[in-house]
Each structure stands twice: as C-alpha cells, then as structure tokens.
Write a protein that binds this DNA or RNA. Structure first.
Lengths: 333, 333
DNA sequence: AGGATGAAGTTTTACGTATAACGTCCGTGG
DNA sequence: CCACGGACGTTATACGTAAAACTTCATCCT
C-alpha cells in the first residue's frame, strides 16, 4: 500500500483527521480523551504512519532545518563545528544539513540543489570572499563563522581570536630565540588567512632584528611540501622557524624539511594552526593553535536561532590556546 | 515584504498562477505565447521569486533529495564517496544531504531529525551492524555501500573487492619475505572489517610457516598507537610486519614502532588500508590499498536512482589497487 | 430553571504548487 | 456558413498537515 496519511490513521481509529493531528502533535490535553488518544496512537503505530514532512513544512511555513556550508570535509575543524551546531540544533528540535562546497574553499554553486529541502537559515564557515553569492541571493538569515566581521550581509558573526593565536605563536618562537621566519601562507583569498598574516607582521614589530619571508602554499600536504622546499632552498641564510597557516601546510613543511636532510625541531622549528587530528598524527607532533571548534558551531547555531526568533544575537571573539608539542625548540645556529 | 509566491508573480505579470507555473516549469511550448512567458519571467526576476520547495515537494510527492549516511566526517574516504554521489545526483537534478552518524561508527539515531526534508531514498556507507534500525523503519529505498551483501533490507549494494585488497597486501608482504604478522584490527563490529580479517587468514594459508597475532585497536591514531605498542612488546619473537585495517590505525602503529626505537621499514613494515590523505601525510608514506571511493559514491547513487525508477540495479565488486610506498620492505632479521 | 462552563470532538480552511480539465477566439477547409 | 482544431490562457482541484472556529452534550453555579 501507499504511505499512510493522517487521514488513514483517523479512519482506522474511528476519529477525524484533526484529532489525529492533535494527538500526534502532543497538543491534546483537554481536547481529546485519554482513551481516544491511545486508540489513535496504536492505529498510527500499526499502520507505520510517518507524517509527510513536505506537508508539515508547507503548513507551518518553517522546516526547522538549517544549512551548514563548509569548504571541505577532510578537515576535522569543520567536522567539529558541525558537531557543535548539531548538538544545539537538536536541543531546539532543529536539524542541520551539511553542504560541502564542491571546489574546496571556493565558490558555493547552488547549495540549494544539494539540499532542496526548504531551509530556515544558513550558517557558513570560513568561506572565501566571493563564495557565497548564491546564498546571499536567497534572502535567508545568514550566520558567518570565522569570516570577515565587516561583511554586513550576515545577520551575525562568530569568530575566533585568530589574531591572538598567531600573536601567541609568533611570540612563542621569538622567546625561543628565533629571528629568521618563513611564513607559509594558504593560497586562498579568505579572511581567516588574511588575519594570520597581519598578526604575524604585527607581532614581529616588537623584534626589529627579525626577518620574515612569505611563501604561498596550497592547502594540501604535497602542494605545501613543494612550496616549502622551494622557499627553504631559495632563502639564505635559511629561516630557523616556519610559521604555517594550517596544520596541513605544516605537515607538508615537515616533509620538506626532512627531504632537505634537516631535523625538526633541532634545525628548523615548524608550527601549525587549528590543532587538527593531523597535528598529532605526524612525527614530530605539531606545536599548534587549538581552535574551540565545537564551541564555534554551538555559538553559530545559537546566533542563528536568535535571529530566527527576532532577537539580536551578540558576537564575541572566542579564545584560542597555544599547544606546545615537539615541533618547536630553540634554534641551534 | 514576505516571500513572494507564484500568485504574486502572476498578479505582477497580469496572468494566472497556473500560467506562472507553466512558464517557470518550462512546460509551456504551445500553451503560452513567447511574449507572455517573457513577461512572467521578468516579473519573477523583479520580485526575486523563489518557489516554495515544501509546496512543490508536497504537490509532486517527491523531493529529489537523498540522504547519505556516513560514520565519520574526518575520514576522506567518505568525503570522496559524497563527491561521487553528489556528481551523479546533480546530473539527474537530485540533491544529496549528508548525515554523519553522531557516534562515529555506531547507531544512527534519528537521522531524520538532521534532515527533516522529506527524502526519496537513503544511501548508507560502511555502517556497523545494528546501526541502521531507524532508517530501515522509514521504509525508504536503501542502498548500502561497503556493507554486508547478505543484508536483504537494502534494495541494492555497492561493494569494493576488499578481500582482494587484503589478499594483495598480504601476498605483497609474503613475497617480501615476511612470516611473522601482527594484524591491527579495527575495534568495530562492521562487515567491512570482518572481511579484512577473513582475507588475511585465507591468504596466509598458502604460507604454512607464517604466524599471525591479532590485536584490536580503536579507529584513532592515539588509541591505535597504544594498542600497537602493547601488542609489539607482548609478542616474542617480534612480528616483522603489521597489517592495519585502516590508514589511521597504521599511522598509530608507525608512532608505536618509533617509540620502541625501531625503524620503518627496516625493522618493521607497516601497511595501511583506504589510501586516505593521511597515508601520504605521514613519514614514511604508507603502503596501502586504494579504494575507488568516488566510484563507490557514483555507483551507489546510480543504483538508488534505478531503484526509484523501478528498475533492478545490478551490483558488482569494484576493484582496488595496491599502492606500494615507503612503509614496507623485506625484513632484515 | 437557565445560562455559563468545559470536555471531547468535528468541520473547515489555508499553506503554495503543478496540472488536468475546461473556455475562447480565430483562421480555414469543405 | 459552419464545424473544427490549434493557440493561448484560465479555473478548479489535489497533495497532507495544523489549527482556528464551530458543534454537541453534560455538568455546575446561583
């Protein structure tokens, strides 16, 4: 038989469709007797009734579903953001649908083809500058995570104190005695990486004798390895510390250093960013900056829920933490 | 103003709502004049009209959306499966919604809370034995990837020739001269891992002098490291080759080997499985088995589309490939 | 006694879309 | 001169649900 509807349940229980809706919607205290309610419930169970979500969404004018747009799935930062967002959503009887932007960090082309469900709102994390055109056009409430706070198309922002993170990292290296730096910057035009570069430059002003070379690297281990190798061989005297925009880039940098026959951290210190699972999967384990990823997801969802309720959300910069592991040490030269 | 409906567009263009639906649905050849059609289109554009998906889904009785259930997001195998599935889906004007089972490889609790959009079907990848109860109860067409073909609740299966993969890997090590094996098995009751164990046992029958010890390890780098350390110190004489169920476990095993002061591959060979990004991010790069992950996603989606059209899908085992890198070598002892 | 109250339902309506069924006008062939 | 079929639309209806508005009947207070 075809999928049973509430009308079928009503017929089976000998009541009207409205009664079924009341009972199953748990809004029947004082409107339907306990006996009838029980009859409806068993009828529904016997028929295997599942409400038609499309009809409910149409009726209610809301789907209690939000879209989370992320640039990549292979990065567990986003997995943790999702976890946090989904937890808060579940507590408010909302669902989260995940849309990985197909080109990695790049334009999000028609995310609504991927999730044709009607949506109540959108959360976008760490997206590149012009990547959200389609989403903006949809006039849905938008919360941006880890993105330029100056972007006014978003109803709210949730950001991590990245500048403080890169400052802490740079000062960590300075205090170890490093003065010649290589910055392996992600080859992506996104706010989150621009902040890192600024912050390094700013932190180095306190050390006038420090030198900084910047090299751009793709967000893959092998691409980053090639870029690091290039930069390390081309720069004399050789840098003693490599600041990477990301743990993935750092993993590539480590491979490059070893390829050149050098040791980490004795000859060169390497630092990551994000504290991905990768950071402790490689040898040596990376000194890095831990992002409160789940908290970012939670705050993002809370902000969106506030927007949906018409309240004004507040946004503040969440703190990060410097995690010192085995990839940094004082320079020997 | 509130979101415009097709009725608003009709009013603006001076036609009936039906005409709007015909024009925008691209089903108007011979029913509406080109001039009127153009008027409707500009009116729709001016008002920023977007069709209400919930209403359309209700009317059509189909959402052209399928759910992809995966056990984890941090594993790029699943990211690639998604990519393949989404590509095929897009070509057929379908969307894919991703549901990461919250407990990693474990029970999928109410996936429909996560994607309350009505769904036309479900694809589930590599899920543990009893993890799909809720999905089965939803009486939606179900395609299973990388799962027990004997499970008859699925309308179709897409599998990779894992047995052949583990056979190739075992024979690779045998041909290098290894005889003392440690199998680091994933601590998960799922078909995909059961096959690996069987296949190793089967392949070792051709070498009567070979010994095999099996140790269970969690699917995390650190958990696997601990398990590997335990097994390697407890077994004498020490194994010369470690067969891991997964690249993540292999990464942990590598850390364990180095902690014991041994070298890879000179003292101990370590093998992975899946060819994740991690396999080439660690040092040495892992000898592993490459899975045709995107192809799995594509075939899965094709099978589901066939089921939805009432056709019978065919299922065959996709081939894998042995990738020899730097983590395996002949034993020196 | 008689209206007010409340329990236990039912009838009706609306959500926005897609499409089947139905009109209307006009040119044309017989 | 009239029936007939295309071109160009419109009107009406159904999808399944939630909830407002209404009915019915028994009880209770004054």
């Amino acid at each position: 038989m075809a999928r049973p509807t509430s009308k079928d349940v009503a017929h089976a229980a000998g009541v009207s469709q409205a009664a079924v809706s009341l009972v199953l919607g748990d809004k029947w205290r004082g409107r339907v007797s306990e006996a009838t309610a029980e009859r409806v419930r068993t009828a529904a169970r016997d028929l295997g009734y599942r409400p038609n979500l499309a009809a409910r969404n149409l009726r209610l004018g809301s789907t209690r579903t939000v879209l989370l747009v992320v640039p990549a799935l292979t990065n567990d930062f986003f997995a943790r953001v999702y976890t946090g967002a989904a937890r808060i959503a579940a507590a408010h009887d909302f669902g989260v649908v995940l849309y990985p932007s197909p080109d990695g960090i790049g334009p999000a082309k028609d995310p609504f083809a991927s999730a044709r469900s009607a949506l109540d709102g959108v959360i976008a994390s760490s997206m590149a500058a012009g990547a959200l055109a389609d989403i903006r056009g949809a006039d849905l409430p938008l919360v941006m995570l880890d993105s330029d706070p100056a972007d006014t198309t978003a109803a709210a922002h949730v950001n991590v104190d990245l500048a403080d993170g890169m400052r802490q990292m740079t000062e960590h290296l300075l205090s170890l005695g490093h003065r010649r730096f290589l910055h392996l910057a992600a080859d992506v035009d996104s706010w989150t990486f621009a902040v890192r570069a600024d912050s390094i430059a700013h932190a180095l002003r306190t050390a006038p004798d420090a030198t900084l070379r910047t090299e751009h690297a793709p967000l893959t281990v092998h691409g980053a390895r090639a870029a690091a190798e290039r930069a390390l061989t081309a720069t004399t005297p050789r840098p003693t510390a490599v600041l990477c925009d990301d743990d993935i880039i750092a993993a590539g940098a480590c491979k490059a250093v070893r390829r050149l026959g050098l040791r980490i951290p004795e000859d060169i210190s390497v630092t990551g960013f994000d504290d991905l699972a990768l950071a402790t999967a490689v040898d040596p384990e990376l000194t890095t900056i831990r992002m409160p990823a789940e908290l970012v997801g939670e705050r993002g969802m809370q902000a969106l829920l506030h927007v949906l309720e018409g309240k004004e959300p507040q946004s503040d910069a969440l703190p990060v933490e410097l995690i010192v592991r085995d990839s940094t040490a004082p320079p020997t030269a």
